[in-house]
């Protein structure tokens, strides 16, 4: 089975029923997406498939059609993505475990809505659970990223 992850083709010998998350983590060694619940209820495993956030813990790898981007694929050779930099600037993470998923969702939100309102943020991000309660800083970081993106046209 062939996947494209972060621009790289990956050949995997996986049962098509295996969730994408475990194919990435255990077979491909890509550990940015985290296991949190296994039932698409916490968002820690969020990756992008053709730009859309999906919960990789519940998506059978055999159903994947399209290019996969994980947190590892967000930062390029020139450093952190705008969203990651905003996360760093706002000092968002505490334990950090959910943050890869949070960042993937925020990235997708800003691709669709360049200047998200508080409601937009609530609507987009409520699928990503954070037990440390970093939500106020997540909100601030999304707004900061929106401003930065507008400035740089990124």
């Amino acid at each position: 089975m062939r996947l494209t992850v972060n621009g790289n083709p990956i050949e995997l010998d996986a049962d098509p029923d295996m969730p994408l998350l475990w194919a990435l983590r255990d077979l491909a060694g890509i550990t940015g997406p985290k296991f949190g619940c296994g039932i698409a209820a916490c968002g820690a495993c969020t990756v992008l498939v053709d730009g859309t956030p999906v919960r990789s813990c519940s998506l059978p790898v055999g159903l994947v059609e399209g290019e996969i981007v994980t947190i590892e694929g967000l930062s390029g050779a020139d450093g952190l993505s705008v969203v990651q930099q905003a996360w760093l600037d706002e000092q968002v993470p505490q334990c950090g475990y959910c943050q890869a998923g949070q960042i993937m969702s925020a990235h997708a939100l800003l691709e669709e809505i360049s200047d998200p309102s508080d409601d937009d943020i609530d609507n987009a991000m409520a699928g990503n659970l954070c037990r440390c309660g970093t939500y106020p800083r997540i909100r601030a970081a999304i707004k900061r990223a929106a401003v930065e993106k507008a400035k740089t046209g990124a």
């Binding site: 983590r25 550990t31 940015g32 997406p33 985290k34 296991f35 994980t70 947190i71 590892e72 930062s75 952190l80 990651q84 996360w87 760093l88 000092q91 968002v92 993470p93 950090g96 475990y97 943050q99 890869a100 960042i103």
Partner: peptide, 15 residues
């Protein structure tokens, strides 16, 4: 620990 945590670095037990 902030940079590792915004880049998905393999720092946790599960990693």
């Amino acid at each position: 620990d902030m940079h590792a945590k915004v880049t998905g670095a393999p720092i946790f037990g599960v990693d």
